[in-house]
Amino acid sequence: MLEIRRAADRGSASFGWLNSRHTFSFGHYYDPKQMGFSALRVINDDTVRPGAGFETHGHQDMEIISYVLEGEIAHKDSAGNIKRLPAGEFQLMSAGKGIYHSEFNASQEADLKFLQIWIQPNQFGGEPGYQQKDFGQQDGLTPVITPTGENGTLLMKQDARLSQLILPVGESLTISQQIGRRFYIHLIHGTLTVDTESLAPGDGLKVEQLHELTVSNSGEVPVTALVFDLP
């Protein structure tokens, strides 16, 4: 089964300093048909004005992923981490029994654009954790976050995997899916065809009950997407 979540159909929020599009119900946006997908709870597509950001706030028992598309995040948290997260890098903050943090646009001149992603953990409590890494821009499917931290990936407290998909123009890739697993694909750049469905930037695709699927770059620029393998 393939179900498309079109970018134009997402929820929205605008606060002057922040413009956000919500793939799933979040904040003041509520859609009972879009409450998440498996353990995936939030994909927010955020644009933050220069020098602005999210003041210190708390989280508990959530795996929080940030992926910067343009600009740089200035991060500070109650565990003592003071970091910069530039475009192309992944950040994973495990909230555990509780953590406070702030996120600001590090630039006073240009907008910050990033994806904020929440995944519900299967382990609760415990000490909060912070991880950050650049996985490069190699073609194909690159594992980024796993439940084991294998091969240098970031370690997540959930039986889920996040991979970065990069496809040059005209290239295709076949991805296998284990019985009982689900995929969610979020397209960032380019035009992606998944079997018979075509995705544009900001679109998402829920995939269930398929043994394998073929993804193809059907546009004129390289494709960048995130692929979630979920329980």
Rank of each mutant, 00 (worst) to 15 (best):
A52G: 00
R10N: 09
V221K: 12
T196H: 15
G11N: 01
H186N: 12
V48L: 01
I73G: 09
H211C: 11
E212I: 01
G51S: 05
L85G: 02
F54P: 00
V223C: 01
G152I: 08
L155A: 08
T23H: 07
S94K: 13
V207C: 08
R21E: 05
D61E: 09
L192K: 08
K33L: 13
G140E: 05
I166A: 06
S218E: 05
L213V: 10
K33Y: 06
Q116D: 00
Y29N: 06
P50E: 04
P201L: 11
A110L: 12
S218H: 09
D45G: 03
S172G: 05
R84C: 02
D134F: 12
D134W: 14
A200P: 00
P50N: 10
R21M: 00
Q116C: 03
T56M: 15
N19E: 10
H57S: 06
G204M: 11
R21P: 01
L40T: 03
G11A: 14
L199R: 09
V48Q: 08
K97P: 01
M93Y: 00
S102E: 08
Q116M: 02
L18Y: 00
P201S: 04
A39H: 11
N122K: 11
V194W: 13
G202M: 07
S216E: 14
L205K: 04
R84Y: 14
A79G: 09
K206M: 11
I65D: 02
F24C: 12
K83A: 15
T47G: 09
R21Q: 12
K133L: 05
V227G: 08
S176C: 03
E55V: 14
V227R: 03
I185Y: 06
T193R: 15
G219K: 13
Q178T: 05
F90A: 11
L155V: 08
S20R: 14
R21A: 06
S12Y: 02
I4G: 02
I65L: 07
R21V: 09
L112T: 04
I166G: 02
N19P: 02
W17G: 03
D77S: 08
Q177S: 00
G136Y: 07
L155M: 10
G53H: 07
E220N: 13
E212R: 07
I73K: 08
P121N: 05
N105I: 01
K97F: 11
R5D: 05
D159L: 12
H189K: 15
F104Y: 13
I99G: 03
D45M: 01
S94C: 06
G129N: 06
Q138A: 12
R21W: 03
P143C: 04
S198I: 15
E171S: 14
N44H: 07
V68G: 02
F54D: 01
S78I: 01
R161V: 14
P231K: 13
D9T: 10
I166L: 11
L226F: 06
A160D: 04
H186V: 07
R5W: 07
G71I: 07
K206D: 08
H59C: 10
I82F: 04
N122I: 06
V48F: 03
G51V: 09
T174E: 12
V223I: 11
D61V: 10
H211D: 15
H22E: 02
K206Q: 12
